[in-house]
Write a protein that binds this DNA or RNA. Structure first.
Length: 605
RNA sequence: GGAGACGUGGUGUAGCGGUUAGCAUAACGGCCUGUCAAGCCGUAGGUCGCGGGUUCAAAUCCCGUCGUCUCCGCCA
């Protein structure tokens, strides 16, 4: 090795040792006859002091060094004089008095600051540049720490499950296209002209086949691919902790995941309290009723409330018609916001409009109700009080749980508009009113999902989770007669409003799987060509089994307090699916295409 | 497919009809033996993303386009 120690390890116990360090010039402070170099490697920073009188040759070399040059320095570890120690460095009590300095490599002036503390204004570098020069971005402490955190989490996961008799089995990346779910990435076959592999959206079918194979306890840190549009929390390729267990029911799987997440949280983020133990379990129906969404952020309150019954009987046409059309009227309370400026109220209105709401009804409670619980007109601030009777206002007030000084916000529309609108409005209120403790870890389970949902466009039922999910035992009898009422043995695990994982107990009997495929409108020819391998496998003694997959990128991002999973991925893609460093995707040669039997259509752009 | 925001020396930004395009930082040169975001002095660095239009005059207003980000649709 070109170094005897790292730049983060030396301290007063090493004083007198002659050591060699190697790393990058983090910063250089040139005092003429005396040069200080902060030498940085992955492990820390050590101050190198080069004295022109003690070591003229070393000084001449250090004089040439610039930021990000790669240096090797030999010298003696020396205690810094009292008062000259740097408490911000783990090595701040010592310095390396250089005897020899070697420039191992020079460096161009980097396109952005790498040394920590340089972006002290809080402003970060444009992400476009960070992505183009990702190898320099990763040199910076923030990204380096995130990748280290990711490694520690993956390592913990591997040990946790290995210790519990799970084995990691790799599954193919070149797989088979399936019509359900997300759009596949496809890969042309050279050996089989005109045919294509697909990259796995997840190793779902393979892990079920491993259960048939008798593996019993499987996990994998698995790369998955989905060709859908990107988001801050979605990349075209991402990583799952994929897991499957035989002879397990939903409680067994949730219990082991819950134990893992608790142990992981304590290990990785001991300063972050877990809000509720054991994790709360919420039904899908309750989650939608009280939070408008199936992944509630439980770090704060402000549950939604429902006044559809009252709205149906009111004189306010907007509300009444929404309910008559089968819709809902629900609301949320913005605490302490009764005197919100009209401009801020308009901002909230624009906010809900982006989720499809036509408007936002607001009622500010500026004064106490009278002894009978009724509000005087001057106690309220609203654009709609004139449409409601005092008793109706009283009911809305009581239903909302609001207090004097709060602002009640209401949305009326189809359920598919009202719930997402208010779910996002609740989060916006949480942010604006600073109701969210950023240190809290609020885990919960969401269970009792519907098995099927009706796709209006395609006029057919489709699987909410995926088509291998089992219905609850008592619900199978309604699969044909009332498919919308069938609940699944499915569960999602939520952290701070992010869905970090989901899974289910699978169907292990081919007769039940056949029934479900029929319910989904698949012909026996289709099921045979797409899932024949699985159905056949189930006839050879498939054990009852189930599993779960956790989104590793999201989990790491939560612990890293990153606002996008790109910050916990070494080489991520942009929102347009491109890699700015490699300049991919890119065109290939005509010869490559010919070998793959592919003729291009004219590009649309 | 749709909506919004942003694009000004290497970087981060100010300027939003007439400025010599300002500031900070980095870079380069000089001075300096106790700094740790070192300091002081000096130098260089910009076709204001690109194209078109409006105007006597455009970084600034309008249209288009490219890129990045966020969101909707899409996606568990």
């Amino acid at each position: 090795m070109l170094k005897t120690h790292t730049c983060g390890v030396l301290n007063l116990t090493n004083v007198g040792d002659v050591v060699t360090l190697a790393g990058w010039v983090n910063r250089r402070r040139d005092h003429g006859g005396l040069i200080f170099i902060d030498l940085r490697d992955r492990f820390g920073i050590t101050q190198v002091t080069v004295d022109s009188e003690q070591a003229p040759l070393a000084h001449a070399v250090a004089d040439q060094a610039r930021s990000e040059y790669v240096l090797q320095v030999k010298g003696q570890v020396t205690a810094r004089p009292e008062g000259l120690r740097n408490p911000n460095l783990s090595t701040g009590a010592i310095e390396l008095i250089a005897e020899e300095v070697v420039i191992l490599n020079t460096a161009k002036n980097p396109p952005f600051y790498i040394a920590s503390g340089m972006s002290s204004s809080g402003d970060d570098v444009d992400e476009m540049l960070r992505l183009k020069y990702r190898y320099l971005d990763i040199r910076r402490p923030r990204m380096a720490q995130n990748l280290l955190l990711r490694h520690r989490i993956v390592r913990f996961i591997r040990e946790f499950f290995s210790d519990r008799d799970f084995i990691e089995v790799e599954t193919p990346v070149l797989l088979k296209s399936t019509p359900e779910g997300a759009r596949d990435f496809i890969v042309p076959s050279r050996l089989q002209p005109g045919e294509f592999y697909a990259l796995p959206q997840s190793p779902q079918q393979l892990k079920q086949l491993l259960m048939v194979a008798g593996i019993e306890r499987y996990f994998q840190i698995a790369r998955c691919f989905r060709d859908e549009d990107l988001r801050a929390d979605r990349q075209p390729e991402f990583t799952q902790l994929d897991l499957e267990m035989s002879f397990a029911d939903a409680n067994d799987i949730c219990a082991i995941i819950e134990a893992m997440l608790i142990e992981l949280s304590v290990l990785i983020a001991p300063h972050k309290p877990i809000q509720t133990l054991p994790f709360p379990v919420i039904s899908y129906a309750d989650a939608v009723e009280y939070y408008g969404i199936d992944r509630p952020d439980l770090r704060f309150g402000q549950p939604l409330f429902n006044v559809s019954d009252l709205a149906a009987a009111s004189d306010f046409a907007v509300f009444r018609k929404a309910v008559e059309a089968g819709g809902l009227v629900k609301g949320v309370v913005y605490p302490g916001a009764s005197a919100l400026s009209r401009r801020e109220i308009d901002e909230l209105t624009d906010f809900v409009k982006q989720y499809g709401a036509k408007g936002l009804v607001w009622i500010g409670i500026s004064d106490e109700p009278d002894a009978a619980g009724l509000f005087a007109p001057e106690s309220l601030r609203s654009q709609v009080t004139k449409f409601f009777t005092p008793a109706e206002i009283q009911t809305i007030f009581e239903r909302s749980g609001a207090a004097v000084g709060d602002l009640i916000l209401l949305v009326a529309d189809r359920a598919a508009v009202v719930n997402p609108c208010l779910a996002n409005l609740r989060l916006e209120i949480g942010r604006r009113a600073r109701l969210i403790d950023p240190n809290l870890l609020a885990y919960c389970w969401v269970v009792d999902f519907p098995l099927l949902e009706y796709n209006e466009e395609e006029k057919r039922w489709q699987a909410v989770h995926h088509p291998f999910t089992s219905a609850r035992d008592e619900d199978w009898e309604r699969l044909e007669s009332d498919p919308g009422s069938v609940l699944a043995k499915a569960y999602d695990v939520i952290l701070n409003g992010w869905e970090i994982g989901g899974g289910s107990i699978r169907i292990h009997r081919s007769d039940l799987q056949d029934r479900l495929f029929a319910r989904l409108g698949l012909t026996s020819e289709q099921t045979e060509s797409q899932f024949g391998h699985l159905l056949e496998a189930f006839q050879y003694g498939a054990p009852p089994h189930g599993g779960i997959a956790l989104g590793l990128d999201r989990l790491v991002a939560m612990f890293a307090e990153a606002s996008t999973i790109r910050d916990v991925i070494a080489f991520p893609k942009t929102a347009a699916g491109t890699d700015l460093m490699l300049d991919s995707p890119c065109a290939v040669t005509e010869a490559q295409l010919a070998e793959l039997h592919i003729a291009l259509r004219p590009a649309k752009r």
